[in-house]
Design a protein around this nucleic acid. Sequence first.
DNA 1: GAAAAAATCACCCGAAAGTATGAGCCAAAA
DNA 2: TTTTGGCTCATACTTTCGGGTGATTTTTTC
Lengths: 158, 158
Amino acid sequence: MTSRKSRQIKLVVLYGIALALLAFILHWFEYRFLIMDHSFEVYIGAIALLFTGLGIWLAIKLSKPKVEKIILEKKVFIQTSPKNFTPDKDNLLSLGISKREWEVLQLIGQGFSNQEIANQLFVSINTIKTHSSSLFEKLEVKRRIQAIEKAKNLRLLP
Amino acid sequence: MTSRKSRQIKLVVLYGIALALLAFILHWFEYRFLIMDHSFEVYIGAIALLFTGLGIWLAIKLSKPKVEKIILEKKVFIQTSPKNFTPDKDNLLSLGISKREWEVLQLIGQGFSNQEIANQLFVSINTIKTHSSSLFEKLEVKRRIQAIEKAKNLRLLP
DNA sequence: GAAAAAATCACCCGAAAGTATGAGCCAAAA
DNA sequence: TTTTGGCTCATACTTTCGGGTGATTTTTTC
């Protein structure tokens, strides 16, 4: 954010300098050859075109790019085999499950109640509820049982 | 696509007209009051600013949004082992689990709530509660999660 | 046909689970 | 330095679960 702002400021300053320079050059030319040889309209037109270009360039540089997002879903087939189990860290990351949420998920998977989990982790039951709620959201389920099922399918639990 | 192009053409034409009009107005002013009263630099500056604004406006109007494709991987599960699952009838009998209770157990194992199970079996939720209660008693557990665990160990559920 | 077992349902109550919202703290990142 | 994300906790409210008790109706079994 900060870098973006400073870059914008730089651009504006640059623009100002360029404007001043141009005015100076034009003024200088005015007393030399250019003005006398061309009609006023052509002169104005040239300036207009030039600064229109400058404006376009400025807009392109300054404007945040318009982005259209197209989401394609790719199906990935997975086999479940809980033999020698190691949690699938890719899935943990892609679902955005934090360490603490992961701990809670494991304990839920072992059939503990919220209160028991709270005691084991030395936090309040409300904290566990918060964690489990966000867990259910990330796993797109409504109940802890479904969370366990899904976690097993995702190879997060044995 | 066609409407986009035609709109662009319209804009360009409009821009041309605006430019011509402005040039005319400026020219007209030139011979009246404006030019004589102001320095050349101010005049140039005004035009520059104006057309810079015009350029910015044009760029914003004409710029096509960048298209960004995001590929999401959607997991699909393949169940290997529970394909041809058969419950251990010996255990069912030795525990004294009735048909109806076993049906309820299966639905519990699929993560359904009591209400959902009641709807599926076309009975009241109270009935499901009765069944699940006696189930827990027979399985010697306190919560449905533990019931599922134990049932899986006893080969009653896949 | 009578007794026993299974299935159905109701009501109450308390505990557990889950939702929604807001807020404070802190470390890592921009 | 400011912002962000993770963690913590609280409060209030709703829903679900499970225990307990009791009752009626089927179905099975003797």
